Computed example of a mutant assay.
Amino acid sequence: MITPGEHLSFLDARLPGLVVGAHVYGSRVLDDVVADSDLDIVIELSSAAEVPSFEGADVAVVLAGSLEKPVFDVTPLAGEITPVLWQQLRTVGQTVRGARPTCPGTSADVEAYCRDNLVSYWQRLFEQVRTMPELPPEDILWIGLGPARLWHTIRTGEIVSKSRAGVLAAAHWPDLPLLDLVSVRRGSQLPLTDTHLKAAIELFDRILADVTT
């Protein structure tokens, strides 16, 4: 598992003097690092350049100064930027180089993004999932915990990790075996079965109903 320092050393050797800001978000700052967690990081460059890929790093690249603008006014040089990312950087992100960014935005922007993502991405994905007789465990974890994060953010405005979202959803819907998903994400060898796949589908249907009523 790579560290921010290792990634910056890699970039500095290939882009000397260009990396003026680096900000970590995701599992590293949400207390949810697991064995296969990527390093989620936003890199600021002093001028446009192609940032080489690094295995284990999920990188968004912007020009210096971009993190002082609303997300809708920024075109990234690489990767994806969203209102949710802006809020993480503004609230819980860890700056490892440069000045801490302001990342202006509103809770309404974040909620609107989450609601749209539930439909534009997740609802379409679940239309495919419903036709599949089985899925590998890592995919069951993805579809079981991902929508729960959006559900919690829509309801509260808070951005939480996948594991925390699973715990919160399990408390809200205790009849679903969602804590099994959290346990497996954290390293348990518990087998995920068709029961868990059906629970993930049922959870999504309940989330969609809950946030649209």
Rank of each mutant, 00 (worst) to 15 (best):
P4M: 07
E6R: 15
D12N: 13
A13H: 15
R14P: 07
R14V: 02
L18A: 09
V19C: 07
G21V: 08
H23R: 12
V24L: 12
Y25W: 10
G26Y: 05
S27P: 02
R28L: 14
V29A: 06
D32Y: 00
D32L: 07
D38G: 10
D40H: 11
V42C: 04
V42R: 13
I43M: 09
I43E: 10
E44A: 12
E44Q: 14
L45N: 08
S47R: 15
A48S: 14
A49Q: 10
A49N: 10
E55Q: 14
A57D: 04
V59T: 12
A60C: 03
V61S: 01
G65K: 12
S66Y: 05
L67V: 06
E68Q: 10
K69T: 04
K69F: 00
K69N: 05
V74E: 00
P76S: 01
I81M: 00
T82K: 04
T82Q: 03
Q87C: 08
Q88V: 02
G93F: 00
Q94P: 03
A99V: 11
R100H: 12
R100M: 08
P101T: 09
T102E: 13
P104C: 07
P104D: 01
T106W: 12
T106K: 14
S107N: 09
A108H: 11
E111Q: 14
C114R: 12
R115C: 03
D116L: 14
D116K: 15
D116R: 15
N117E: 06
L118E: 06
L118Y: 01
L118C: 00
L118Q: 01
V119N: 05
Y121G: 02
W122G: 00
L125D: 04
E127L: 10
V129G: 00
M132K: 10
L141P: 04
W142M: 12
L145T: 03
G146A: 15
A148P: 04
G157M: 07
E158P: 03
E158C: 04
A165E: 06
G166M: 01
L168N: 06
A171D: 15
H172D: 13
W173M: 04
D175G: 02
D175T: 08
L176R: 02
L179Y: 01
D180N: 05
S183H: 11
V184G: 06
G187T: 11
G187P: 14
S188C: 07
Q189V: 15
P191H: 11
D194S: 14
H196I: 03
L197Q: 10
A199K: 03
E202K: 01
L203F: 05
F204R: 00
L208I: 11
T212S: 15
T212Q: 13
